[in-house]
Write a protein that binds this DNA or RNA. Sequence first.
DNA 1: AAGTGGTCTAGACCACGTT
DNA 2: ACGTGGTCTAGACCACTTT
Lengths: 256, 256
Amino acid sequence: MMSEALVRKPLPAASSTGSAAFSPLYRQIKDLLVQALDRGDWKPGEAIPSETELALRFQVSQGTVRKAVDELAAENLLIRRQGKGTFVSTHHEARVRFRFLRLAPNQGEAQPAESQILDCKRVRASAEIARALELKTGDTVVAIRRLLSFASVPTVVDDIYLSGVLFKGLTAELLNGYSGPLYGFFETEFGISMVRAEEKVRAVSADGEISALLGISKDTPILKVDRISYTYADRPVELRMGHYVTNRYHYRNSLN
Amino acid sequence: MMSEALVRKPLPAASSTGSAAFSPLYRQIKDLLVQALDRGDWKPGEAIPSETELALRFQVSQGTVRKAVDELAAENLLIRRQGKGTFVSTHHEARVRFRFLRLAPNQGEAQPAESQILDCKRVRASAEIARALELKTGDTVVAIRRLLSFASVPTVVDDIYLSGVLFKGLTAELLNGYSGPLYGFFETEFGISMVRAEEKVRAVSADGEISALLGISKDTPILKVDRISYTYADRPVELRMGHYVTNRYHYRNSLN
DNA sequence: AAGTGGTCTAGACCACGTT
DNA sequence: ACGTGGTCTAGACCACTTT
């Protein structure tokens, strides 16, 4: 967390050709905060400096810092707690844990998920995987297959691909020695915070392998959910291809 | 748009048993604005009074009005336009038109959708439909079936159910005499603005009827998208059951 | 020039949690 | 009592649009 050059007024020149691209103070501060998060200046779960402290540091009013923090809180990078401070979001938390899992039961209360690692190996990235993760074809990636069950009913098979460089030392043993959400594991073990994701959802037929794992007959319609997850600087760090059985559960979404 | 009683401070008493339920000024103002929208004080596309005007009217500072309007803009009920004013959102607009249609092509640019009304009749609400629309079983509802195609390729069959009372006079002829998004049509013809929706997505097999309409073989996996749409006061006004072919298109979603 | 929303400031006071 | 975030105010100035 260093001091830096805030631009107080729109660059008057902008020369003849170039675009000015001025951004307001609060947005510049927001960007600096994101950079600090990306550098790991404050870890998930920790408090960031108070608003007055940040205002002093950046030499702006508290209201300006507040607006920057407001936006980061709206994007779920930070969490405000009145009377206590502002904290870095973490995936070890009830409130955030279901932010990325959009599966809900058709009836009744949501059950806790049971996760079972089926496979974890290092492979060469296919063209598709390389493109998604912004790697080169043939680069080493970690390939994980895991099964999610609810009340002992197999419901989701996830095929997960991660950059081999970023997740050096990731093994099935490590994964099995861990309980809780995968994103929490990535956070504490590898210092990588998933902040945002894009999903593409399709209906497909279950192939032999998947149907066997899910305990359904071959060619049953299932949801295929392709997700790319991004960390702070909008760098893609995970490709996850999910196969969801949707007879007792569904994929929920809110449109605003 | 009337004057009203704003509560300036937390009700100090809150009696012994009752809960105070105090809300800040800006939220009270927000609620009043939503009520005004619901009453139709300002129509979709029209400008609402300026911030200074509203501040004067409510006897608060401009900053307080601003915070209320900020939240409504974040929820897409209002749209700010610098230098011009703040406007009521409308579904007749490029920027908002794809807010509710989450279908995107696997490759290439999004094509304009071609809508074809297949059926429009009045029926008695089943228990399921009545529950979704908060009506009584047996109440009259309008049932619409329509086909969406992209570049002449049939892609979506929607079964739409609307309250017969709210949509009195809705006929196939009216629908066919209209081009553009259905929600725009509902807005201008019936004064009903869709503001928010909840969707449940599942993978199912296409039955005979649906597969024939979509030009696919029976039992092809398709997406079933059940949507309930709400208007200003969070009243459900539309149940829409969509059947999506997802070989060339997919359902996109962003997780934050 | 006038009116709109957008940014920034400085200060007051409240609500909440910890010491 | 103190420090934190939450609300509210009053005023200044900027950027954009229309008259």
